[in-house]
Structures are given as structure tokens and as C-alpha cells.
Amino acid sequence: MNFTDATTATLTDGGSTYDGIDTPSTTDDGISTPIINDLANTGFRGKPASSQAAEDVSQLIGRFGFKMARTLQKLAIKKALFADHKLLRLPCLKYADNFTCRVTKLYAKVPIDYRDSAPLLWWLWDPLLDYLQLTASTAGCKLEFTPAHETDISLPYTIVINLGYKRGGDSIELTASYGRLFCEQRIFDAPIAKFCFLETERYGKSTIATLNIDRHTYKEGGCLAHMLNYLVPRSGNLWRLAMEASPPDKEEILVVAFAGTCKAKDDQVYMSESQGQQCLNLLQRSPPDAKV
């Protein structure tokens, strides 16, 4: 089965800065959103949303660094970001997106069985953040999704996602099957477009280009919603849409966690100047109370 390569994030040199702050555009991020066909009716045709999801996480880690990735893996932070699991359901799977999950990491002797039920994107968040960090070349991960018992599905889906290094690059493979007497299986395999700051030249020397920038520096009052929009700017990102349900009583824990991702002198985890700048830009959007 032929498969179109995953959409690649195209970044341009911002060319200049405003008040010394580079700001990624939330309207022109260079990423096109694929149209996902209804898997329940078409038999898993079209590009899997998991491929785009991997690229979104790659952009997040590339912009903010591995400190941010580790922060977002913390269960308390993840629960604060995604308070309503139902909002993480993939539209193409409709009501059937409710799974238990078994995670097998490369070289791990015993897989981890999670008995709780949650949508596919809830389970995919942590492995992607883990895989796309520094140890990506040896990480490798397999997620096996089994429909939760409380769902009423006449033709149950079985989905397996493999993260690994293939054909000289990182790849995400999704195998989906459904049906009993008339079983059908589809396999999608696409490269993960790794995010990186582009190189450019200034005064004859190689420098790192900025992200796409907006016309004006952020000058609004600040709120959690603006922080989250900056964290995951692509329009239509399902993780970002689910973040909108984060309750007010979780605002403080998230703002404090984001503040902790900024570059510190005693950091053992590498963070580039560009990544440090992105974290400072994120804090500019924090609620007024947090700036006091």
C-alpha cells in the first residue's frame, strides 16, 4: 500500500526580532493539517493522525528543549493539561477510541500493562515525549491498544503503534485491524519530521535562524490560554484543543511547572539559547498574578 510521506514543518528565518524576542506565528506555522478519513466507514484509509501528532511533539521539544519534555511527562502535569480524557479522542475512531494499553520499550524485559481506559492520544503522549528526547536512537517503543471492556463495539478495533529508527530516520508505524469474521488490517508507516532550528548566516558566520515570527511582540495581559497557544501553536492540534478544558484550580501548578523549564546555571540537561528564549517567551504570557 502506497503511503504519502508525513508532512514536514517548514520554518523560515524570521530575519529580525522585536524587542529582542522571537515569537512563533500561530497562524503561519508552515504545517498543513491532513484530512483524516472516517476509519469506521472507510477501513483506515488516509493519513493517520498519529503521524502528525509525532511531528507536533517533535516541534514542542525542539522549541523548548528536553527540560520541558521531562516536565510534561509528569503525571500531575499531564492530568492538569488533559483533565477531560474524552477531548483526546480521535474523531476518526468516534466512540471506539477508548483503550487499555500495553507499552513495551526496546530492551525492556517486561512490558507495562495499564489497566485504566483512555483514548489513544492519552497513551501516546508520554512515549513520544520520551522517544524524541536525547536517547531516541535507542529508545524504541511499542504500544498495543485493546478496546476497554466498557465500550460497546460490534467490530472492535485493535491498534498497535511502533516508534523506532527505520530507513535512516525516526518512524512511526500504525497497524490497525478490526472485525471478527471479516477481519481487515491496514498498516501505515511514515517518517517523523524532527524539528530543528534552521541555520543561516549573519556577517559571514553561521547562526541559528529564529522561528516564524509574528509582526508584533506579545503585549497582552497574559493568561494560561495564551501560554498553551504558544506551547502548541498548530491550529487543529487535538492535544491543544483538549488543553482548553484545563480547570482553573490547575492553573497555578501549570504556570509553576512552565517556569521551572527555563534555563538555569546548574542545569545538567542541555538547552540552546534559542530554546531558552522560547521558554522566556512562554512566561511572558503567564497570568498577571504569576508575575507579581
Rank of each mutant, 00 (worst) to 15 (best):
D13C: 09
K166W: 10
N229G: 13
T33V: 13
E173D: 13
A40W: 00
F195Y: 13
L129R: 00
L254S: 01
Y203R: 09
A148P: 02
A69N: 05
P24H: 05
I192W: 00
K219D: 12
I36Y: 04
P287H: 06
V255K: 01
T100M: 10
F182M: 12
Q73R: 14
A242G: 03
T26S: 05
T4N: 10
F44S: 00
F182R: 12
K47P: 00
P34R: 00
T207I: 15
T27N: 07
P191H: 02
T217Q: 09
K291T: 14
T7F: 09
T27R: 04
F182V: 12
F44I: 02
A176H: 03
M1P: 08
N37C: 05
A76Q: 15
Y203W: 09
C196A: 15
K78N: 07
N2V: 12
S272P: 08
G260W: 08
H85T: 07
K265L: 12
D19E: 08
K79Q: 13
S235I: 12
G30F: 00
K78C: 07
L238H: 06
R115G: 11
R180E: 11
F258V: 09
T151S: 13
D28H: 10
A49D: 01
A148R: 01
D22A: 13
M68S: 05
R234N: 14
A108G: 11
L81R: 00
A40K: 03
L280D: 10
G14K: 02
I208A: 10
V255A: 07
Y230E: 01
L224D: 01
F188W: 04
K194I: 15
G168Q: 07
D56I: 02
G14V: 03
G164E: 06
Y95R: 13
Y107L: 10
I253D: 11
L75W: 13
M227Q: 11
T27M: 04
N229E: 14
L283M: 13
C279P: 03
L124K: 03
L120A: 11
S177Q: 09
Q185L: 10
L128W: 01
L282E: 03
K94F: 06
E173M: 15
K67I: 09
G222I: 01
L231E: 02
I213T: 07
Y203V: 07
N98A: 11
A209D: 04
C196W: 14
P147N: 09
S274V: 04
T138D: 15
G46M: 00
E251V: 14
L163A: 06
E244T: 15
D130C: 08
F195E: 02
S137P: 05
G204R: 03
P119F: 04
S235A: 15
Y230L: 03
P24S: 07
L282S: 04
T100L: 05
G15C: 04
P247I: 08
D116Q: 06
T26G: 02
A176M: 13
C262H: 10
G222T: 03
R180W: 05
T71S: 11
T146A: 13
T200D: 11
A245E: 08
S58A: 15
F188S: 02
R215Q: 12
I35G: 08
K205W: 06
T200K: 10
F64S: 02
D19F: 05
P24E: 03
T104Q: 11
Q278R: 12
G222N: 03
F64C: 04
L231C: 07
M68W: 00
I153K: 09
L120I: 13
